[in-house]
């Protein structure tokens, strides 16, 4: 079984960033069949509004992790879009040209439908980067002014049809999130987040098509063992399972 984990945060392990922690994580991942991990950075280290310096420091740590295992980790550049176009463009350029980052990671600095996302998407377009947007149902969490609902991620995808976007956290987005994402060819969803609810992966495959569902764990807060077996145990064909666990992410991130 070959696996690419498209949603990991391997920098806030139990004892903090240490080479031994990353050594352990890579060995753990390889033992489970995980051939590559997308590392998204320690995105909540400085709270909801990291400064430009803090953003750069987080991305430098991501690059450090990648440098230890360059054939294992695929890094995404964490951004705070509210810092403005100049910062966004310079940080993306720095992370792409200096470190070879493959994507952009958006968390809860702002809502994905906000105007400040325009330069982010322009940077993604210019550098041919995939955008991974944290998404969670805001029906019960009353934070939509800065926290992205799946409907907002879908709107982002409609506004920028030439940028490939991953809606994070299938579990947090739920059935409504899947339906929001339906019919958008540039939008993908990762399987991470929350308890491994039964039936939701099958529902996403039915409505989005198997090519739009990507395996993700959100480790270390969640366990890769649990996230993988959720996919393995889903009522899917072996070919569908292979696509979700590996092929779709390999193609999206051009990893072969």
């Amino acid at each position: 079984m070959r696996i690419i984990d498209v949603h990991t945060h391997p920098v806030f392990m139990r004892r903090g960033l240490q080479r031994t922690e990353i050594d352990w994580l890579v060995a753990h991942g390889r033992a489970l069949g995980i051939e590559r991990m997308v590392t998204l950075g320690d995105v909540l280290l400085h709270g909801r509004f990291p400064t430009g310096e803090q953003i750069s420091a987080i991305n430098d740590v991501t690059a450090q992790v990648q440098s230890w295992y360059p054939d294992y980790f695929v890094s995404f550049c964490f951004l705070n879009p509210t810092l403005g176009e100049r910062h966004v463009m310079s940080e993306v350029e720095r992370c792409v040209t200096k470190y070879g980052f493959k994507g952009l990671k958006l968390e809860i600095c702002n809502n994905a439908s906000d105007a400040c996302m325009k330069p982010v998407m322009e940077a993604a377009r210019r550098w041919n980067l995939v955008v991974l947007q944290h998404s969670w149902s805001m029906t019960n969490i009353k934070q939509r002014s800065f926290h992205t609902d799946p409907a907002d991620t879908a709107l982002l995808a409609r506004r920028h049809p030439d940028v490939k976007i991953i809606m994070a956290h299938l579990t947090g987005c739920g059935v409504r999130g899947v339906l929001e994402a339906k019919g958008l060819p540039n939008l993908y969803i990762d399987t991470s987040g929350g308890l491994p609810d039964e039936g939701l992966i099958e529902y996403a495959v039915e409505h989005l098509g198997v090519d739009h569902v990507l395996y993700g764990s959100d480790l270390p807060g969640r366990a890769a063992t649990v996230a993988i077996q959720r996919v393995v145990g889903a009522r899917l064909t072996p070919a569908e399972r292979k696509k979700i666990l590996y092929d779709n992410s390999a193609r999206l991130l051009q990893l072969n």
């Binding site: 039964e198 649990v226 077996q229």
Partner: peptide
């Protein structure tokens, strides 16, 4: 587990693969 609302196989892996 919370089964069958939550994947029993995934919950079992929490222990069997620890």
């Amino acid at each position: 587990t919370f089964a069958p609302l939550v994947s029993a196989r995934a919950q079992a892996a929490k222990l069997t693969q620890s």
